[in-house]
């Protein structure tokens, strides 16, 4: 077992986008940033940020609050437009939000006036699917995230962890190319958080979805990510990349105590504190 936690040097502005890991290396990237900059109110949030994410890859965006990680996510989601450079999904420039990129929000952002099933099938309703089809998909997705039996409950009747499961199922129902997760489990207790993290990995393995996962927790990034981008200084376009090498299936709880996990955690910790 090789420990593959190797900090790379900060990416030079204009450098070629990083290649994804072996399995994704030959396939064209699903998601690509080319010298993306973003300024708001005359203040530069980031500039010259470039990276590429391969199909089925899970990239954790790690960094303290205010580092710009959510801004990256919002640009991929299409909520924000880059002020410089291009952001590309599936070969097309991102011009706005769309069901090919699903977002799981920190506070779930469920529709309180809809049942769990209606929340999950929302994308199908927007696309004009029949009621019977919506119900079938809702039940299938509810089963996938362990919510069978709660289809007709309202979100306010659920615990925080279950609400996030609805948030996951709702995104999965749209069959997105990319899933964007914005610190989705940060408000949950440790046990719930860990079981949801394992759930994310299982879902990724089943659906082959590409995932961008924003977090400020090193453990979460190291447990989930195939790669970790440590966003130190996006204002100059610099960030560190770490490859994560853990036994499969990744969702194994033992991976949280695996030497390679612990070593990576330490490396990132030192790097963050310097």
């Amino acid at each position: 077992m090789t420990v593959a936690a190797r900090p790379l040097s900060p990416l030079e502005p204009g450098a070629a986008p990083l290649q994804a890991k072996a399995k994704a290396a030959d396939a064209p990237p699903v998601l690509k940033f080319e010298k993306v900059g973003f300024a708001y109110d005359g203040r530069t949030i980031m500039r010259d940020v470039s990276f590429a994410v391969g199909p089925g890859e899970l990239v954790a965006l790690l960094g303290p609050s205010g580092c710009g990680k959510t801004t990256i996510l919002n640009m991929v989601a299409g909520f924000l437009r880059p002020t410089d450079g291009v952001a590309v999904v599936d070969g097309r420039e991102i011009v706005g939000p769309g069901p090919d990129r699903g977002v799981v929000f920190q506070a779930a952002a469920l529709f309180d006036w809809m049942t769990v099933a209606e929340n999950i099938a929302f994308s199908l309703r927007c696309a004009g699917a029949r009621k019977s089809e919506r119900r079938a998909v809702a039940e299938e997705m509810a089963a996938l995230v362990g919510l069978t039996g709660f289809e007709d409950a309202y979100p306010y009747q659920l615990s925080g962890g279950m609400r996030q499961r609805v948030g996951l199922a709702r995104v999965l129902a749209a069959k997105p190319k990319v899933m964007l997760m914005d610190e989705p489990f940060s408000a949950l207790d440790v046990q719930t958080r860990e079981s949801l993290q394992e759930e994310v990995l299982r879902i990724r393995d089943r659906t082959g979805c590409t995932i961008l996962f924003v977090t400020h927790a090193i453990d979460e990034a190291a447990f989930l990510g195939d790669r970790i981008f440590l966003l130190n200084d996006l204002k100059s376009g610099a960030y560190d990349t770490f490859d994560v090498d853990l036994p499969t299936p990744r969702a194994l709880p033992e991976n949280r105590l695996h030497p390679s996990f612990l070593r990576l955690r330490e490396t990132i910790y030192r790097r963050m504190r310097h």
């Binding site: 989601a77 990129r101 927007c126 709702r170």
Partner: peptide, 18 residues
């Protein structure tokens, strides 16, 4: 919730209605 709806493919009318 507005963004969630948009990212699930809701058009302007659907965002308003739902």
């Amino acid at each position: 919730s507005l963004r969630a709806a948009q990212s699930m493919g809701a058009n302007r009318w659907q965002v308003f209605r739902f």
